[in-house]
Design a protein around this nucleic acid. Structure first.
Lengths: 152, 152
DNA sequence: AAAATTTATATTGTGCACAATTAAATTTGA
DNA sequence: TCAAATTTAATTGTGCACAATATAAATTTT
């Protein structure tokens, strides 16, 4: 029984730690770029979704980003305070809160356009390698969706 | 100027989001397994490091996991409360706090041995695919280390 | 050796994540 | 039709992450 050398519990062998460490480094790499826009990384993701399609509900944003209202509600209130989005109940269904870009929120897209360019420079990856890794991660994420969870 | 269809700002094109989403799903997949051990995911990582090599300082744990004292100090206090580790200043250098496994912390390793097995079943990946993705993520993380940062 | 600097940890404050609960609006179905 | 079930957000509470600062111990400089 050589417990100490059981490789399955070694940190450097873990896929989960490589993923966790890479994800935090990625967020850290975005930080200076997003600071310049006055956004945090999760706020940037919300803005990406809204730039793609405006006037989504909290639920729709949550489905897209896989985040619940416990995370989104305070985040969206901060974006509202920053003047980037508006929040109002839909008259068609008062349970739903519709999030819309303000003019400032819409304008920010142009300044944000440089963010992916800066990151591409930073990564020094071929377009193929980039896509391949991204798609491997998407596959991994769907593999990890809990069976009884209808998220996908 | 077709702003709306600029692909560089589409959420589904982003490597960063694929990474962020996969990392959160991975943590979520560990949660039920770690709940059974009374650990959170970051606490599990700390235990992995200590099972590999006991009696590390907070700084050494932080270097291994890339976490600072603001994260580790309260986490380690919770592990201490749970009876899994001890914390004491080193007599050789009173600035350093040495973290050691208690008997309970050491014993937990045997129960933790099933965690990687369960996750391997869940992932349904070949050993080669697993290693390849893990090593790609390690390469990505080093690529993202800030130039002036001596972390690697 | 005293002063300045460096190092190690802790503390404070902000912002996620996520589980659990609550409250209100809507839908369903007996 | 109206009570029960469902849906949508918000709230509460815990535990990370991480920046900034504080504090104390050790080391280096003068």
């Amino acid at each position: 029984m050589r417990k100490r050398t059981d490789p399955s519990l070694l940190l450097d062998e873990q896929l989960c730690f490589a993923l966790y460490a890479a994800s935090r480094r990625m967020t850290a790499a975005y930080r200076p770029l997003l600071d310049a826009l006055g956004l945090t990384y999760p706020q940037y993701l919300v803005m990406l979704v809204l730039w793609e399609r405006d006037a989504l509900t909290v639920r729709e944003l949550g489905e897209r980003l896989q985040l619940d209202s416990g995370t989104l509600t305070p985040l969206l209130k901060r974006l509202e305070q920053a003047g980037l989005v508006g929040r109002r109940r839909r008259q068609s269904d008062e349970r739903e809160v519709e999030i819309t870009l303000t003019q400032a929120g819409d304008n920010l897209r142009e300044r944000a356009a440089e963010v992916p360019r800066c990151m591409a420079d930073r990564l020094c990856m071929s377009v193929d390698a980039f896509r391949h890794l991204r798609d491997e991660l998407k596959t991994l994420a769907s593999q990890l969706a809990s069976p009884q969870d209808p998220r996908e």
